[in-house]
Amino acid sequence: MKRVHDMGGSYEYGEIPVSLDSEGDFIDDEYVFKYSWHAKALAITLASGSLGEWTLDESRHARECLPPKDYKNFSYYERWIASLVNLLIYKKIVSLKEIIRFSKLVDDKNSQNYLNKSFKLDKRAWLSQNVKKDLSIGSSSSRKINIKPAFKKGDLVRTVLKNPNTIQGGHTRLPSYAMGKKGVVTKYRGIHVFPDTNAHSFGEKPLPLYTIEFNFSELWPSENESSHDIICLDLWEPYFKKQT
């Protein structure tokens, strides 16, 4: 069954939340962070990630593991914060008791002095002098290892019908709308960390990655909006087979 985050092609959503002016031109009225708590949510998530206790794929998986009802109702950064708490507890970095205690503390005006004092930094903490440098380096998923890619440009392929990761609700980057579909390899992209294992602490298992093109009419045979349009996805080798 299609999961809530796997929403590509879903019919249940309305207009894109944007506005046009009287000339029909797009109005760019975006703030980088609409509220200060959005900025905090992003920064705390990044700083927590830098503790090195989980991978990017695990943090995506944690968001996908929110109860579907919460995922739907939460705004973007609420999803981030809820899944961050779950990860922090799951990885035993904080305890349920601590969460309960601090939930009460922040509501209590008398505790502000306590919250404002400075604390000794853990050795894993991301130091401010490293932030800019580390962000400018990032963390590439590309791996220089010797695996021969099994496919080449022009190969006809068909994606698998089911997520190769059969952990119930396991992480994958093969969206359900592109499962069991015919496509063509247009580019080999090198060896990259495999999310289906990396999201479950089973290691990086780097594998060949390719861009696969799908005809619009293959993915959406009943739609006729524009049958000659193309959808491109980046897919790892276990996500597809040679089309015979």
């Binding site: 708590w37 905090k40 949510a41 705390i44 700083a47 927590s48 503790l51 950064y77 609420e78 914060i81 809820a82 961050l84 708490v85 922090l88 970095i93 904080v94 601590e98 969460i99 601090f102 939930s103 503390l105 922040v106 919250l115 604390f119 000794k120 930094l121 853990d122 894993r124 903490a125 991301w126 130091l127 401010s128």
Partner: peptide
């Protein structure tokens, strides 16, 4: 919610 997590992580020295 954000403030709760921020305060907790600060108090444990996990975020600078």
């Amino acid at each position: 919610r954000v403030k709760t997590i921020e305060s907790l992580l600060l108090s444990k020295g996990l975020i600078d």
